[in-house]
Simulated assay, not measured.
Amino acid sequence: MTEQLRLSKRMSELGLCSRREADEWIAKGWVRVDGKVVSELGTKIFPDQKVTVERQAAAEQSKRVTILINKPVGYVSGQAEDGYLPAVALIKAENRWSECKVDNQFHPTQLRSLVPAGRLDIDSVGLLVLTQDGRVAKKLIGENTDVEKEYLVRVEYTKSGKLPEGDLRLLNHGLSLDGKKLIPAKVRWMNEDQLQFILKEGKKRQIRRMCEMVGLKVIGLKRVRIGKVRLGNLPEGQWRYLRDDEPF
């Protein structure tokens, strides 16, 4: 017999919303299972039961924003720490990119529940995604994500001569971090001191640690793409809204 699972988990699996959003909608009576309103948190259902949501849920979800920022050095991705400001502190009307194409007026309520979907460490710059939409967060940092992240990495070889070809192959596949083998990456030289990294995972300080293992010191690291969304000409320290026609 098919096992039951929590309604909120099933809604997340169906791509309707995040689990947290699901719990909010259930509590408000906005969710139906086989046509009947379900308002009790923790309710379990069978996978073949039909789940629908009321129009109010879709309307509320459509107001949720996703913001792209070109994070400068010295800002942390998430909560403020060690006296450093979080990147969300840069999200204010005066820092909005003048070329932002979304007809959306900035309002401080858009900062509520605005969380980073992925991290960039304090010494790194480039594309950072902050979102109120649980579906976007799941797509970018969920367990089964396969979204590519592209980085330009300026490096210095700490040994004599040049990085051996075998070590470049190791950066592509063969290294382990924290006792686990890394998913294959795409790493190639862009010029004599800059590498392009394309990853499908994001362990803490992953690129810096990978480079250290083959004798490379990272001088600068910039994320330029997440999925199909590029940093482009977005100036450092400025932000814009994600457009409806920009799927990751």
Score class of each variant (00 low, 15 high):
V51F: 02
V224D: 03
A185T: 00
I183L: 13
V115G: 00
P247K: 13
P108G: 04
D146W: 01
G118L: 09
P86F: 05
I198V: 14
R19T: 06
E21G: 08
A89S: 15
W239A: 05
Y157C: 08
Q194H: 06
E236Q: 15
I45E: 11
L128Q: 08
D193Y: 03
I67K: 03
T145Q: 07
L114M: 09
T131N: 09
R32E: 13
T66G: 06
E40D: 14
L221H: 01
V65D: 00
Q56G: 00
Q61S: 14
L128T: 06
G220H: 06
L177M: 08
G29I: 10
A22T: 12
I26N: 11
L216C: 08
E156M: 06
A137E: 14
F106I: 07
I67W: 05
W30G: 05
W25D: 10
L127G: 01
R154L: 00
R55I: 12
V73A: 11
Q79Y: 10
V33T: 08
A87H: 04
L128H: 07
I26D: 13
H107T: 15
P86K: 03
G142I: 01
R20Y: 04
L182S: 03
V224H: 05
Q79C: 01
L140S: 03
N70A: 12
K180R: 13
G220R: 08
E24T: 12
L171W: 02
G74C: 12
V136L: 12
R119Y: 03
W30P: 04
I198W: 04
Q4F: 08
E143R: 13
L41K: 14
L231Y: 10
F248I: 07
P247I: 03
A93V: 12
G74H: 13
Q196S: 13
A137R: 07
L14R: 07
A57G: 09
R135F: 05
G74R: 12
S8A: 15
E192C: 01
V155P: 04
L182T: 00
L168N: 07
G174F: 00
Q79G: 00
K36C: 09
N95I: 09
R240F: 00
K200F: 02
R32D: 09
K228W: 08
V51Q: 03
G179C: 05
V51L: 02
P47H: 05
R154P: 01
S12R: 09
L195Q: 01
V102S: 10
R96E: 11
C100P: 06
K186F: 07
Y241E: 02
D23V: 07
L16C: 04
V129L: 05
E165W: 12
G15C: 04
V38R: 14
K44F: 07
G74V: 10
V73R: 15
G15F: 02
K50I: 14
K138I: 01
W25N: 11
A93N: 13
I91H: 05
Q105R: 14
K181E: 15
R154D: 12
S12Y: 04
E246G: 02
